[in-house]
Design a protein around this nucleic acid. Structure first.
Length: 209
DNA sequence: GATGCGATTCACT
DNA sequence: GTGAATCGCATCG
């Protein structure tokens, strides 16, 4: 796979990952929605924009490894590291269609109303695969880790690929680095970044209307 | 050393 | 459509 393409080309890599399948713990998911992130001061929205830290260090390692991070105090998200070693880039796996192990995925996602919801949204995708922080830094291409990337079993029609701004990111809203399969029912609903309200104690909030 | 906010989801109105 | 829950990292004093 083209995971080792130059980091700057990560949007192309993200697009190419649509249709690719991710397998873990008895569940296989066909990717329908991804987002590209670039490090090294070229993408303010990326965890790796301001250099390597203990949290994002995996992004600076070799391509094909999993970058799993914890967000909002409750959820995990899964990225595939891209680009050459030392030049950080990654693709966030946002959503997909469960093509194998739906029974297991339903047990792991009891609140899903339909099978389309099983891996709809980045944290839901992670829960369907039953992976967690222990998967951070493991290879997704060696076949020896908990996660495995597999070539598409069904090709994606290039005419069906749509792109737009990334979901929920405050910075770089002009970059169309989110890619998805148009019309696919497993693609998560777009939500623009909502500024957090900073309610200082002792000070009145914004005037109610 | 303290503080603020985020690549989200779910329940409720 | 909107708000709460909740942990770690980066930033600032």
């Amino acid at each position: 796979m083209l995971l080792d393409a130059p980091a700057e080309a990560v949007p192309d890599t993200a697009r190419a990952l649509l249709g690719v399948e991710v397998a873990a713990n008895g569940v296989r998911i066909r990717l329908t929605e991804v987002e590209a992130y670039l490090g090294g001061g070229r993408d303010p929205a990326s965890h790796a924009d301001r250099g390597s830290t203990p949290r994002n260090g995996v992004m600076f390692g070799p391509p094909g490894f999993a970058y799993v991070y914890f967000v909002y105090g409750a959820h995990y998200c899964l990225n595939v590291v891209c680009g050459q070693e030392g030049d950080a880039a990654a693709v966030l796996l946002r959503a997909g269609e469960v093509v194998e192990g739906a029974e297991l995925a339903r047990q792991r996602r009891p609140t899903a109303r339909t099978d389309w919801d099983l891996a709809r949204g980045p944290a839901n995708l992670v829960r369907s695969l039953a992976i967690g922080p222990e998967a951070n830094g493991t290879s997704m291409v060696s076949g020896r880790g908990p996660l495995q990337l597999l070539p598409p079993s069904r090709p994606v029609d290039v005419g069906d690929v749509a792109s737009g701004p990334r979901v929920g990111v405050a910075a770089a809203q002009d970059l169309p680095w989110r890619f998805w399969i148009a019309g696919d029912p497993t693609v998560s609903a777009y939500r623009r970044h909502v500024p957090r309200r900073r309610n200082k104690p002792g000070r009145p909030g914004p005037p109610a209307r």
